[in-house]
Amino acid sequence: MFVEAALTAATAAPTSPAGSGEDSATRPGLAHRLRGAAPPYLYLLPALACLVLWTYKPLVEAAQLSVYHWNLLPTSPKTYVGLANFQRVLQLPQLRGAALNTLWYVLGLLPFSIVLPTVIALVTRRLGERSRTAYRAMVFVPMLVAPVATAAVWRWLYDPSGLFNRLFGLGDHNWLREESTALPAVLAICAWQMLGFAVLVVSAGLSGISPDYAEAAEMDGASRWQILRWITLPLLRPTLLFMLLMTVLLSGQWTFPLIDVLTQGGPADSTTNVYYLLWEFGFRSMDSGLASAAGLVFFGCFGLLAAGLVKLADRFSFHDD
């Protein structure tokens, strides 16, 4: 808030000495204001055009589809069914299971996208430049591996004759085919892939924090723990909220290719998540109306969740000044 006020004051300042009298200041003032208002919109234009064309127009079309029954074939007719698709969505037991799994994926990923990365970033901050860079480079590597390659490697590790079973003497336990272990197995792969990236994000957030605050507190006799608790972590909060938002919204998309390649949602729907269910509705059973309705329901739910988180982030983001 303070910064915004300072900026408007700064932009207003150059105009006032230019106009000698009050009457001459009003006319160029309006033109100047119009010209001054254009740049941000021009800078936004390319990105905005992409968004509207490739995200929001299709979304509107999905909303239209959601009240029809249509199997995606251009030759077959669309039948208007009103809100029947939404009713089916809310009554499907499959969907409740998928929503619960999605929640487990999010909760299971949080330690690896927020807690551990924060600890690691704090710990490596004090290490020497050279070794810190080397460690970071290494933990980031899993993020580089293409999901299908990741799935292939881990399927080989999890294989009944694979390394894990041989190493731990577990016989021929089939990790990805047992209901009890399939979801944690997929989750472990996703966590392995995310951890390094999360460490880099949190480290970037940490290095953006001026050490002046910590030094000032240190001079006042604050302990290391007090500095961490009352200075570093609060200043890191926007970064952590950003990671939280990302985990909540994207964990479904991150696990999607793994589920698709490794389990196809099975065994007995134990690894499926809401996105995979959408994919199945739309392209396996060709039920585009149901898929669109379900997509809109998820869009609404995630939207409410995200709105809450963004509000939270906004409240904390002005702490710095």
């Binding site: 968004l51 995200t55 999905a62 479904g252 996105y275 994919w279 739309g282 669109s292 997509g295």
Partner: peptide, 21 residues
């Protein structure tokens, strides 16, 4: 509002926009 439009793309499942695109 415009910023919200950007953030909200995270909520739009790829699986919903795929057919129309």
């Amino acid at each position: 509002l415009l910023f919200l439009l950007f953030v909200a793309t995270w909520l739009v499942p790829f699986q919903v926009t795929m057919v129309s695109n």
